[in-house]
């Protein structure tokens, strides 16, 4: 018996949208995989007609060019969506935000301009608390990221039946400190790190903080982080 795909030949016309959304508060615990499901359901609740892929197993076309680590907040996560209808950007935004899970808001809706592979850098705002006074942490961290070499341990994919291994690498060219201040609330670090939606080098702040903690023998007992910007190779915001 021949199976016919459910929506074979139904709709080949689609309208591409690029949206950015913020992900804050409790929503930072939604994993990348779960976020996909959550967004699909949000579009369904909003009654926005998503374009489905035209295969044997049609699925709604929603795509996140970048992954955000679990536990990290963001102000500007990009998301590409294909809809069956051409709708006003503002209408899409307000209909989605009415039914969005707590902590997630659509910030912008527009047509895609940049290519995913243009993504080059991300800015983060990181607050850390350590076992040292904030001023001391500030001093050491500034020193750490201003040095000629920033050596971190990069985890390597374990080969079959082997233990996990690490490789030491210098990430100097991938790190740029944008600002740092100390207060009773801890040390606030604004930092720019290499980010890629393709195969280029991608630097997470976690190994950087681990390397800092190890080098200066400082215990970090609180971290909160937020992505604040995504930049293209040409220095412009990714839109």
């Amino acid at each position: 018996m021949a199976d016919v795909p459910k929506n074979q030949g139904l709709n080949l016309t689609r309208y591409m949208y690029r949206m950015t959304f913020s992900k804050k508060g409790r929503a930072k615990f939604i994993s990348h995989l779960d976020l996909m499901r959550a967004m699909q359901r949000t579009f369904k609740r909003a009654g926005l007609p998503i374009w489905y892929t035209q295969g044997f197993n049609p699925h709604p076309y929603i795509m996140f060019p970048l992954a955000l680590s679990l536990g990290v907040e963001s102000e500007i996560e990009p998301m590409d969506v294909a809809l069956l209808e051409k709708l006003e950007n503002e209408e899409i935004k307000s209909r989605l935000n009415m039914v969005m899970p707590e902590g997630i808001r659509i910030e912008t809706v527009g047509e895609p301009v940049c290519d995913h592979l243009d993504i080059y850098r991300s800015d983060y705002e990181i607050i850390i608390k350590t076992d040292r006074p904030p001023e001391e942490t500030l001093k050491f961290f500034s020193e750490f990221v201003s040095a000629d070499e920033i050596i971190i341990k990069k985890r390597l994919k374990p080969k079959k039946n082997r233990r996990e291994t690490h490789r030491e690498i210098d990430v100097r060219e991938y790190v740029k400190l944008l600002g740092i201040e100390a207060s009773n609330e801890g040390v606030k670090i604004n930092i720019r790190l290499a980010t890629s939606a393709g195969n280029d080098f991608n630097l997470n702040y976690t190994p950087l903080l681990d390397a800092f903690s190890e080098k200066y023998n400082i215990d970090i007992n609180y971290i909160s982080a937020k992505r604040t910007k995504i930049l293209c190779r040409n220095g412009e915001n990714f839109i």
Binding site: R26, F29, I30, D34, A38, G71, V99, P101, Y222, I223
Partner: peptide
């Protein structure tokens, strides 16, 4: 709770906030 959840499996189970 939020700080501690960073070190547990599937933390979304322990924090609520679902639609």
């Amino acid at each position: 709770i939020e700080q501690l959840l960073l070190n547990v499996q599937k933390p979304a189970r322990y924090i609520g906030g679902e639609v």
